[in-house]
Nucleic acid binder design. Structure first.
Length: 841
RNA sequence: GCCGGGGUGGCGGAAUGGUAGACGCGAGGGCCUUAAGAGCCCUUGUUCCAACUGGAACGUGGAGGUUCGAGUCCUCUCCCCGGCACCA
């Protein structure tokens, strides 16, 4: 065949890619249409924090995969919404401002423009007309509005919370800023914990619904399980123990009341109310003891992370001198104080059952408290107190437990709960691992909390018509040094008059956490310019819920849970139309550097996507990111792999110019095309992008190996299924074909994009496969003797379904004969069209 | 410790309980070329027996089990990664 002109055979992505990006943008190809008659499909990716480092190849993995998915959906006739925006509040911008004096908004704008440029150079089909930015006052006006609604409904409240404090930097720290050894990541000094008034959101009020409604959505199992575990719902009972010689009692939460006959002590947290009363001298204990207790409590409360880590699990504690009574068996339980009991968990007090709980056992050992065994495990171990191995069994039988004896523990749990409730000694309760959500930050670069503190009226919400409370422009971003946000230093902003009584008052100077803006951004895409509401109701009605939400595993617990909570709240107050925001959630694995380590500047293993695009083009990069490995698993970057994808595309380019037949596509190649259409269709739907790419490659291999090549009609079909994965090249080749055929007809120059669906003569839409062609004419049937492969038959499709035909032909095979050795099989397993197995023994 | 994910050639990885290793990379050989590059063709799990056609055994972290048949299902166990971590 004649070699085509060089310019046509040379695959030059850097030339064709920017060209089509410009055309697509000019024609607004990816703008979603509100209220379109087509079925809607909302694909959501997690909007990025626009860091100074630019796009990470990890972003690109997720976004180009979803881009392919969105493109395919469009080609199938859906009205697809695939938007992007910027989650631009956050510490890095603030730290950068402290270092350089450059205002965060300026740095952020710069980073966004860089991100945008990078996105566009990848040909991602985002609807840029709906771009949102959490730091835009028109956006955060609504973040603040949501807060006011929470406040109005009593779900936002102020409370004393322990915070991480760096005494050296004089600032509060987020948990992420405190290293595992308890030091501040920036300055390396030990951090402390101290109490501070903070705003909290009552997410615990939604705990049950957040679990329950997981049934309504399609999340992958591991995501669902992680959410359930994070919420950590536990059914148990609060048992009360009267304190001897007082009118006081102490309540302990437990999930294992069956073991209560084995209780030998009670431990309360240093924060427990009874401790304060003790120190106030409300009970009859000596001054010396009070002093001792006071010292322990003080030490425990001030204990820094560093101290706690260095102590490990070593138990500490102090005896209060008080005893409580276990009303079940009238045992006296000494009351101790120890910091292994957390004030914020359960009732802040635990009943010690050292025979059946590891921590209680360690505590008992340390302070010589008795250990009683009340459950026998399935191993029949009844070892006595002295050698008691600590056991936290899941099943077993009760002993030493009065009326519970010989019962299965699960039955015993029910029985004793009934009994305790009947006697008025306990009350069934549900406890959660989930805590209320601390919603204050003492930083500059966040949404101001729209609250005013008035000396006479107290806490006063900023009236809605005064939103947004804009972040003032400041000169200094350094923390105030008192633990307040830098905003506290902006006198003219802080000092306002009270909206209620008009007297002088002060603004709240705390700002919201990074999560605030990202809780509801997917709603703003639906109506980004709206000044009267979060978004127009009809638009939300049309688009919600998000059909597919795709993001990283690291956001499974926090962001996903928080945003579901906020959305449910908005549903309850009638703002949004559905009870769950995301119909389907899938997560992707992270991309590691070529050395198998997490990409990081300090390792020098960061892959710069711009360089890859510059060398190989966006199509290659996108294809490779999907080919690397299973979408939901961690993958390692490989430069050789990128080259392989480039080679593949170049081969497509070459074959499209050279191996085209005037006749219809025949035989294997035709069957291969239809099989590929089938595979690409279903695997894309299942987000199995690595095998999508593999099947495209497989097809191109058979194209290359074919005698006559593809017909033009079938080349079009191939380009259509390639298009979501290599959009630029597909469009270029498509247009090239169009102009060749149309120039002959009409000489018309401009042609419709491959991505526009209309019922043209070429049927520009996602191609359908012919089921008849997908089936092989001649199939291979493996023949086994005793489950071992001894031969394969080539047999016509319709014959392969008949046992008689397959069996007789199989018996003819020399090797099969040899292994049967003249014996008649005792059994023949025949799976029609799949396999035959002779069983002789 | 708890929860989750994973372990398959030299490497990344395929595989509705039914021919393990698709596809890509790497490697070896050949063609093309003045040469280099690119491209094209062949080979490529291990071991052994054959010797150019082929055949056998072993083989999916390990040990058992279910099954005509197990990478896939069950039990136990080891290792790696991620998250949480004294949560009663």
């Amino acid at each position: 065949m004649k070699a085509p002109r060089k310019s046509k055979t040379e695959y030059n992505p850097t030339e064709i890619e920017p060209k089509w990006q410009e055309v697509w943008e000019k024609e607004g190809l990816y703008q979603a249409e509100d209220f379109s008659g087509k079925p809607k499909y909302y694909v959501l990716i997690e909007f990025p924090y626009p860091s100074g480092a630019g796009l990470h190849v990890g972003h690109i993995r997720s976004w180009s995969a979803m881009d392919s998915y969105a493109r395919k959906k469009r080609m199938e006739g859906y009205n697809v919404l695939y938007p992007i925006g910027w989650d631009a509040f956050g510490l890095p911008a603030e730290n950068y401002a402290i270092k350089t004096g450059i205002h965060p908004s300026k740095a952020v704008a710069q980073n966004i423009s860089n991100f945008k440029k990078q996105c566009k150079s990848l040909g991602l089909s985002f609807d840029w007309s709906r771009e949102v930015n959490t730091t835009d006052p028109n956006y955060y006006k609504w973040t603040q509005w949501i807060f006011l609604k929470f406040f109005e409904k009593g779900l936002a409240y102020l409370s004393d919370v322990t915070v991480n404090w760096c005494p050296f930097c004089k600032t509060n720290l987020a948990d992420e800023e405190v290293l595992a050894n308890g030091t501040h990541e920036r300055c390396g000094n030990p951090t402390e914990r101290r109490m501070q008034k903070q705003w909290l959101l009552k997410i615990t009020a939604y705990a049950d619904r957040l679990i329950e409604d997981l049934k309504l959505v399609d999340y992958s199992p591991r995501i669902r399980i992680q959410q359930e575990n994070w919420i950590g719902r536990k059914e148990g009972i609060n048992i009360t123990y009267p304190i001897d010689g007082t009118n006081e009692e102490v309540g302990c939460f437990t999930t294992r009341p069956d073991t209560n006959f084995g209780a030998t002590f009670i431990v309360v947290a240093p924060e427990h109310p009874i401790v304060a009363k003790l120190l106030d001298g409300k009970f009859q204990i000596s001054k010396d003891e009070i002093k001792k207790i006071g010292e322990y409590v003080k030490r425990a409360k001030n204990k820094s992370e560093l101290d706690r880590i260095s102590e490990g699990r070593e138990k500490t504690g102090v005896f209060t001198g008080l005893y409580a009574t276990n009303q079940l068996n009238s045992t006296k339980l000494p009351i101790w104080i120890s910091d292994f009991v957390l004030g914020s968990v359960g009732t802040g007090a635990v009943v010690g059952v050292p025979g059946h709980d590891l921590r209680d056992f360690e505590f008992a050992q340390k302070f010589n408290l008795p250990v009683i065994r009340v459950v026998v495990g399935s191993d029949g171990d009844t070892s006595s107190i002295a050698e008691a191995r600590q056991v936290q069994e899941k099943e077993g039988t009760m002993i030493n437990s009065g009326f519970l004896n010989n019962m299965d523990i699960n039955l015993a749990i029910e029985k004793i709960m009934d009994y305790l409730e009947e006697k008025g000694w306990g009350k069934r309760v549900v406890s959660y691992h989930l805590r209320d959500w601390v919603f204050s930050r003492q930083h500059y670069w966040g949404e101001p909390i729209p609250i005013i503190h008035c000396p006479s009226c107290g806490i006063v919400p900023v009236p809605e018509d005064q939103l947004p409370v804009e972040l003032p422009y400041v000169e200094k971003y350094e923390p105030s040094g008192t633990g307040e946000s830098p905003l506290a230093n902006v006198k003219e902003w802080v000092e306002v008059s009270c909206p209620k009584c008009n007297k002088p008052a002060r603004r709240e100077t705390d700002t919201m956490p990074n999560w605030a803006g990202s809780n509801w951004y997917f709603l703003r895409y639906l109506d980004p310019e709206n000044n009267n509401a979060i978004a127009d109701k009809d638009k939300m009605e049309y688009w919600m819920p998000v059909d597919l939400y795709q993001g990283g595993f690291e956001h499974t617990t926090l962001h996903l849970l928080y945003s579901r909570f906020v959305y449910k709240f908005l549903f309850d107050i009638g703002v949004v139309p559905t009870s769950e925001p995301y119909a389907k959630r899938r997560s992707h694995g992270i991309v590691l550097g070529p050395d198998g380590r997490k990409m990081s500047k300090s390792f020098g293993n960061v892959i710069n996507p711009d360089q890859v695009v510059g060398k190989f083009g966006a199509d290659t990069l996108r294809l490779y990111e999907m080919f690397m490995g299973p979408f939901d698993q961690t993958v390692t970057w490989s430069i050789e792999g990128v080259e392989g994808c480039f080679r593949f595309l170049r081969r497509v380019w070459y074959l499209s110019h050279s191996k085209i037949s005037r006749q219809k596509t025949t035989g294997n190649l035709l069957a291969s095309l239809h099989r590929t259409i089938k595979k690409v269709s279903s695997d894309t739907e299942d987000l199995k992008f690595n095998t999508v790419v593999a099947s495209l490659m497989e097809f191109v291999n058979s194209w290359q190996g074919s005698k006559n090549g593809l017909s033009k009609e079938d080349l079009r079909k191939f380009l259509l299924i390639l298009a979501p994965f290599a959009p630029h090249m597909s469009e270029e080749l498509w247009q090239h074909m169009e102009s060749r055929s149309k120039n002959q007809e009409s000489g018309k120059e401009k042609h419709d994009s491959l991505f526009i669906i209309h019922n043209s003569i070429h049927g520009q839409s996602w191609p359908k496969f012919d089921p008849a062609l997908v089936e092989e004419e001649i199939v291979e049937i493996p023949v086994q003797v005793n489950g071992r492969l001894r031969g394969t038959l080539q047999i016509a499709k319709e014959e392969a379904g008949k046992q008689s035909a397959v069996e007789s032909q199989a018996r003819e095979d020399e090797r099969v004969k040899k292994y049967l050795a003249g014996k008649n099989p005792q059994k023949i397993v025949f799976i029609p069209g799949r396999l035959i197995n002779f069983v002789t023994s």
